[in-house]
Design a binder for these strands. Sequence first.
DNA 1: CGCCCGATGTGCT
DNA 2: GCACATCGGGCGT
Length: 198
Amino acid sequence: MTALPADFYEQEVTRVARCLLGKRLVRILDGKRLSGIIVETEAYRGEEDLACHAKSGPTRRNAVMYGPAGHAYVYFTYGMHWCLNVVTGVVGFPAAVLIRAIQPVEGLEEIALRRGRFPRRQWCNGPAKLCQAFLINGTCNGAPLLSAGGALWIEEDIDIKDDQVRTGPRVGIDSAPEPWRSKPWRFLATLPDIDQND
DNA sequence: CGCCCGATGTGCT
DNA sequence: GCACATCGGGCGT
């Protein structure tokens, strides 16, 4: 397979967030391939967006968001969790899509090393959970996603129709003021529920 | 320098 | 439903 190209990520961030639904996130660990279908995303858009990490201008932490599209912005939060974003849009405009949930497909045994003590439905159904599952952390911050020869990239996979997409307010930003708190920039794909042993 | 709190997850009541 | 882990960023003093 081939990685999604730079021009995919160079689109407007909410469009990238919508179009990432159904794509395949791929991680190579120790030569083994882990992957899953992206089923939930959120868009964070510019310094104006008061829920975005760039709301106070460029800092060491958010610097990657100001760089070229198609790179990973990985941040640390709550003293213990990592979250994965993909940078979008043009250089100089800080915007990124938070990957909030995936449905695991490949590398289930590798994933189980870190998530196996939980029911399978809970392996990757949160931004920090999927980072733990795929061993994504600060060493991945700034990594390019543009080559299928790298350690992390995104591929085409299944087609998600508009009637399979739900939108809503972003999660965990209740302290952001309106209108940002209510922007419908969370995107969820409703997949036919494949039976997974819980 | 100190304080507050966060794009969360987990376990316990 | 709720407390709490755990620490760095951002901001005010």
